[in-house]
Design a protein around this nucleic acid. Structure first.
Lengths: 207, 207
DNA sequence: CGCCAGATTGACCCATCAGTCAATCGCGGA
DNA sequence: TCCGCGATTGACTGATGGGTCAATCTGGCG
């Protein structure tokens, strides 16, 4: 494993395969590409993919878990901070939008190939995905207890609406040909929170 | 084509294939099933699928378009009515939730498989999907002009948040093993509108 | 220098499956 | 009764692609 620390060493090749997989999955879809496409894109022999990963599935698995765990950590860290609930939601929204800005292809793969894959893949990662909902729901619940949020809807539901809104925005970007501008990213962060927290109604409902 | 009107006639077989495809796609996923699975499920010979459809893709295509066009018609019809914007959104929310209640497997296929397919062969569907956004956005825009809705966010964005929230709720049901109860369906319809229109904040933002 | 372990290679195996097609069926009209 | 044509059948084909594996390379270590 000494090789792992040098450029061109083992860990690098593994990383190269993962990065190549992101590009290939994003371009052709998980089912639409061959393992050899990944190997070619990575500039590596076919068999090496199977040296580092048990299967094609495990490559996607790894990509998802790597990123999703970061998201969970961020939410957990935020949850601990002493800031307004609305700011917490803004921070989560920011993190996800910035994740897309930083690596749209990876987010595309996660959203299209994993999050929406009810069969095969989603099943494995359901708990991980639910964990994110639960953490967001917990933030909402505390906000309701503190009186910052109304309790017209359940925390779990609010969490879904919040996450759903974000994911839909990303999905819009994913299927757009043109890349979003910088100000669109910033606008999206604000709009998500503004919609979910502020609501569309001019006159607030009697709650 | 006279046979089309009798039970067991031509149109019936076509319908049986489509219905069978829904069940099979829902169970194994579009990529995870074989065309022979569809034929078997429909109680029909393999080749007949290709008598009625050019390809496996076209079967999925047809299922999506059939349902999505109904949705578009409903939204258009609603748009013309003289009711409060919030009620229009509630009606849309109701229609989609009821669609799921009525045929969860079909909605599962549309949400899960079509989105993924949009990558490869479903480019056509993107326009159809966008059409729904546009119609919802138009409702929001008019509401803003009339003063019923704030204009803190763009209509297009509000439409995405709204649709995203609904889709996420359905996705939650799809992933859940247990089927939702009747009251959950009704609650969901209300909660979507309550969240998007009413917002989570107790104190309305200064808009 | 020779050895070992892990890295790397890519040809090959073989199960899978979308799509084809020639043959048969059966209804409705003449 | 017979004919024609669309409906229906299912064996077959051809390609595809995930996964295996035996051979080769490399570089550190004694």
């Amino acid at each position: 494993m000494a090789a792992a620390n040098r450029p061109g060493g083992a860990a690098d090749k593994r990383r190269m395969i993962l990065d190549a997989a992101v590009r290939v999955f994003a371009r052709r879809g998980f089912n639409g590409c061959r393992v050899s496409d990944i190997a070619d894109e990575a500039g590596v022999a076919y068999g090496l993919v199977y040296h580092y990963f048990r299967s094609k599935d495990e490559v996607l698995d790894t990509l998802f878990l790597e990123r999703w765990n970061v998201l969970l950590d961020v939410i957990r860290e935020l949850d601990g901070r002493d800031i307004a609930p609305r700011d917490k939601l803004y921070a989560i929204s920011s993190f996800i939008v910035d994740s897309y800005r930083h690596d749209p292809e990876l987010m595309k793969v996660i959203i299209v190939e994993v999050t929406r894959a009810a069969n095969s893949f989603g099943r494995t990662h359901l708990d991980k995905i639910r964990e994110a909902y639960d953490l967001i729901a917990a933030i909402v619940e505390r906000a309701q207890d503190e009186g910052a949020f109304k309790d017209a809807v359940t925390p779990r539901f609010a969490a879904m609406a919040f996450y759903g809104a974000i994911e839909q925005v990303l999905t819009g970007w994913i299927f757009d040909e043109r890349a979003p501008g910088e100000q669109e990213y910033e606008q999206a962060k604000v709009f998500v929170v503004e919609t979910i927290c502020g609501g569309l109604d001019r006159v607030p409902a009697t709650a």
